[in-house]
């Protein structure tokens, strides 16, 4: 409790909800990179021309839609996290529910 802007009153507690949102934003940012990489590798192989034809073109369109939707939803979640952070103090009174928030989600064992 020594960082800049740290409250001096004994009643101040870290905003655990804010910590959870910060962790969610970090996870969303990292997840977006991983998903974008996976799509990039997919399209790089597809661009080699090993599969051509009407069905391949249809599949390509669907894959592009899937990329847009997937990355878009992660971006939307990250934006929501940023908005949430903008309105949140780092410290809250001890009796604030955010001080009693369980904090960031534990890694689920996935990437």
């Amino acid at each position: 409790m020594t960082g800049p802007g740290a409250p001096t009153g004994e009643a101040a507690r870290p905003n655990r909800h804010r910590e959870a949102v910060e962790a969610a934003l970090a996870a969303a940012t990292d997840g977006r990179v991983r998903l974008a990489d996976a799509f990039h590798r997919l399209f790089a192989v597809a661009d080699e021309g090993g599969w051509q034809g009407r069905a391949a073109s249809d599949w390509r369109r669907q894959a592009e839609q899937a990329r847009t939707a997937t990355l878009g939803t992660v971006d939307a979640f990250a934006d929501a996290c940023r908005r949430s952070l903008a309105g949140q103090p780092e410290w809250v009174p001890a009796d604030d529910p955010r001080a009693r928030h369980p904090g960031p989600a534990l890694p689920a064992g996935g990437r």
């Binding site: 959870a20 949102v21 962790a23 969610a24 969303a28 991983r34 979640f77 989600a105 689920a108 996935g110």
Partner: peptide
């Protein structure tokens, strides 16, 4: 996609940020 769905689902639950991610 499966791993990110699991991970972000946990963060959605933790932050209670609404969305269909």
């Amino acid at each position: 996609a499966q791993a990110q769905a699991r991970l972000l689902s946990a963060h959605v639950d933790a932050t209670r940020i609404a969305g269909d991610t």
